[in-house]
Amino acid sequence: MADILRVEGLSFRYPDSPKSAVSDFELSIPEGEIVVLAGPSGCGKSTLLRAVNGLIPHMYGGEYSGDVLVAGSSVKSSNMRDLAQTVGFLFQNPENQIFMFSVERDVAFGLENLGVPREEMRARVDEALRLLRIGDLAQRAPHELSDGQKQRVALAGVLAMRPKLVILDEPTSLLDPKTASELVALVAKLRGELGTTFVVVEHRLDLLVEVADRLVVMDGGRKVLEGTPMDVLFDNEAEAHGVAIPAVAKVQRLLAEREAGKAAAAKLLTPSALALAVEGRLT
C-alpha cells in the first residue's frame, strides 16, 4: 500500500534554541497502520507531529530542512486548508480544542470553516457522533462534559473532517485507566472501519502495544529504535531511552534471566498470553 506519510531527512530548529528539536528524521508509514511514537519528554515528538500537520513551518518559523510528504504532497508547499483535511490532530488537552458552545456545533467547526454545504455537514457530524457513541451529548455544553467525553468530542471534530491520517498527542494522559483503554479500543475500531492511519504519541505503552503495528522510539530529536512493538520492547536499549516497558515484557525478561531464555523466546505482549504460557509451566 502507498505511504500516507513520509518524513525525509527532516531537521528543525526553533529560532531561539541552540540545538535542533528534530534531526535527520526518516519515517514512512503505509496507509492504515497504527504507529506509536514513544520517547522521553522533550525528545522532539511534539515538534515532529507539528511538522506533519503543517503547523511547522506554516505557523512556527525556524530552521527547516528535509521534507515531509503527506499523501504524496509536500507539507511545505501545501496550505493549511488542504492539510487540515488530510491530517487530523488531536491535541493533548481536549479542553483547548473545543471552541463552540454545544457538542454538535463543535464537531461541525472544521466543516463550517471549510464551507461544507449544510446537508453534507449534518450527515458528517451525525456520522462522527455515531462513531464515537456520543450522539446523546450532541446538545451539551463543553463544561458539562467529563474529560473522557471531551476527548471523544474533540476526536469527533477531527474525524468529521475525514482525515486519512490522525495524530493523537498523548491522548490518554488526562484519562482514567478505564476511559483510556476504551479510547485505545476505539482507535483500533476506527482503523478497522475507516482504514484511518493513526500516529499516537503515548507513554502508556501497555495499552497500545496490543493494537499497534509499529513502535518508533525517539530520543534527542533522532529516531533510535523502530520495529514491531514486540521487537522494540524486548530490545535492551528501549529502557535506556526512557520507554516504559509494560509489566508483561518485564516479567518475561526476568524469567529469561533466570532460566536462560526459555520464556524470552515467546515475546508475549498481552497479560492473557503470558498467563497461558505460565499456566502450562505451573501444572
Binding site: 507539528r50 487530523g88 483547548n96 471552541f99 454538535e104 449544510r118 473532517m161
Partner: peptide
C-alpha cells in the same frame, strides 16, 4: 491556552474560506 487554541484552530481549517457555512 490561547497558544494552544490558535494551533487547534489552524488544525481545523479556521479561516480557510471567506464565507464559512453553518450547521444551524
Amino acid at each position: 491556552r490561547s497558544g494552544e487554541l490558535a494551533e487547534a484552530m489552524e488544525a481545523r481549517a479556521y479561516g480557510a474560506v471567506p464565507r464559512p457555512t453553518s450547521l444551524l
